[in-house]
Amino acid sequence: MHLADINPYLRYARVHPAVMEGDRFRAAYDYRLFYVLDGDMTFVTEEGESALTPATVLFVLPGVPYRFVGRAKVLVLNFDLSREHADDPVPRTPDEIGKFHAERIFTHTPPPELSHGITLYGAEALEPLLRRCVSESLCLGEGSDAITSALLKEALCLLLEETKGISHEQPKIVQEITLYLRENFDRSLTNSDIAAAFGYHPFYLNRLFKEHTGTTLHKALLAVRIRNAKGLLKRTSLSVEEIVKESGFSDRTQFCIAFRHATGMTPSEYRKKSRT
């Protein structure tokens, strides 16, 4: 299966007021997306732990043992990547590992991009899509199934776009830098500032980062800022001046030059096109 071929089937979508901790590992029979709305908890697998804060997204594969420690308000989606089992719409509760039956997993051959778990911090851009999945799944109207499938595919593609540049083969420091840029892009940052945050010499850190990502620290930071600006132009009515500030640019001129270079359009042209 290729990414372009997925046709997701949403089996379950709800906002859980409190996902509570469990002391035993469980595994699901379909794919899971968790989006943390409020609270703090820890996601535990056999490979390690991840501290979860609001606006964190988890993508969990079927058959992977996991449990949560703590309590948080979470948006939960259960789904397949194809409609092969759409005639079996009843959600299946994850089983404890001792009772898990691997042959009952719904989807067996994901595309390479979705063949591993994903944790993404600062994923506010996905929240509107995931909330729409929930609301559409509750409508039960004509066409709602097709709408949720399209929304879920868009959300998965956006998740992959947001995690582009974060590879399991990369050194941990490179992954940490990528996350740091995404969490601090709205600040005034130089290579020296970024290097100081990690205790490295700017030249060495920039070379290491480029070696493993194919781009420099400056270009990576600029790409994050442009992506944030594009999202604000699409989803909000903020003025260009406000978006300049929200996206970490020093002034409107710098922003407009960088935006046109990246997209071939002015910010106003991009906003108009994205809303037609």
Rank of each mutant, 00 (worst) to 15 (best):
M1C: 11
L3Y: 14
L3I: 07
A4G: 06
N7H: 05
Y9F: 11
L10Y: 02
L10T: 01
V15G: 04
H16V: 14
E21M: 12
F25A: 06
A27R: 04
Y29T: 10
T42P: 04
V44Y: 02
A51T: 15
A55H: 10
L61Q: 08
L61V: 00
V64A: 02
P65R: 03
P65Y: 02
Y66F: 09
R67I: 02
R67G: 11
A72Q: 07
K73D: 08
L77N: 04
N78L: 08
S82F: 10
H85R: 09
A86F: 01
A86V: 08
V90I: 12
P91I: 13
T93H: 14
R104G: 12
F106I: 02
P111T: 09
E113T: 14
G117I: 07
T119N: 11
L120M: 06
A123D: 06
E136C: 06
C139L: 15
T148W: 03
E161Q: 11
E162T: 01
T178N: 15
Y180E: 04
Y180G: 04
L181A: 01
R187Q: 05
S188K: 12
T190W: 11
N191L: 13
G199C: 05
F203R: 14
F203Y: 15
L205S: 07
K210Y: 14
E211C: 11
T213N: 12
L222T: 10
N228A: 10
N228D: 05
L233A: 06
S239C: 12
E241L: 12
I243C: 03
G248L: 04
S250F: 15
K272E: 12
T276K: 14
